[in-house]
Write a protein that binds this DNA or RNA. Structure first.
Lengths: 164, 164
DNA sequence: ATTGTTTTCGTACTAAAGAAGGATAAATCA
DNA sequence: TGATTTATCCTTCTTTAGTACGAAAACAAT
């Protein structure tokens, strides 16, 4: 997302910045220790304090180093997000029901056009057949679906997944 | 997802395990240092080596500590889970559309009975009104929904979430 | 070639739906 | 209170839907 390597040398410096910083810190600390050594040599009863200080300093250094140089631990949390899908948008024809009711292709076509709100004449025009033919299909459909009206046929057709 | 706190004390111990381990290590190291001190006091020209060893040990300790105690970064992965829902089973009426189209309660009732496949006479019987009344409602409905037939009204009603 | 299914088309009739007009009572709102 | 909305009911007429037959092609399978 928008990462631009403007300069490879700069990138190299970036990567080793922590190491360089560590080197400089180490050098400074050695000077500090030398100085501390000289001072504590004089009061060498305080050796425990000296060692304690060293322990604390280097522990901190270690922690800092580790945090800087270690790859971040990644804990992956999987969140399931429910995506609601409209059933009608991925309609699958109930073919077993078509077989069971012995519905022909033409009858299914007529049924779906019916469900779209077409009149018998409109269905006839769209299927290039006569009004009489559509009426015959209707009769057969109503008998097979065991209904009395086209509106009931639409209802039944949707319930049986014959139409979307 | 399925996280069970079986024992709070155990959980507490778990959380502070690293700290306790650190304490024990520190104690052991102090003993070691005391021993090393005694040995190096004899050969006290080797003080630099002694300090160097301490530095290395505590740096390592710091690194180990940091790695143990640092909190992992949480990476959230969203997994989309498809949930197929039956549109009719959780139907919510599109009330804004009802308001927009200025549909009355009665008209909606008529529309839903229409969608169930009722004839005008059946609708009249179920609503305890006359056939004429139902026809009037139908006319108003068709005009408001901008359709010409009852089947189209059903289609439009479903599309606009006016009926299940 | 025969059989059976699907699709097609027809007529005549009845039932239902829809259009267009007006009208009334009750409820609601300003 | 007056105005508006909602729901109710009516008649007349036209259109559409549905019923009940019959029957001719088209097509696939045997």
């Amino acid at each position: 997302m928008g990462v631009h390597n403007t300069n490879i040398k700069e990138s190299f410096f970036q990567k080793h910045k922590a190491t360089i910083a560590y080197s400089i810190c180490l050098a400074l600390l050695l000077f500090l220790l030398k100085w501390l050594e000289l001072r504590f040599i004089i009061f060498d009863h305080s050796l425990e304090i000296y060692i304690g200080a060293i322990a604390v300093i280097f522990t901190s250094l270690g922690i800092w180093l580790a945090l800087k140089l270690s790859k971040p631990k990644i804990k992956t949390v999987v969140v399931e997000k429910e995506v609601y899908i409209n059933k009608s948008e991925n309609f699958v024809l109930n073919e077993s029901m078509v077989t069971e009711l012995e519905l022909s292709k033409r009858e299914l076509e007529v049924l779906s056009l019916m469900a779209e709100g077409c009149s018998n004449q409109e269905i006839a025009d769209r299927l290039f057949v006569s009004l009489s033919t559509v009426k015959t299909h209707n009769q057969n459909l109503f008998e097979k679906l065991d209904v009395k009206r086209r509106t009931q046929a639409i209802e039944m057709g949707k319930r049986l997944s014959l139409i979307p």
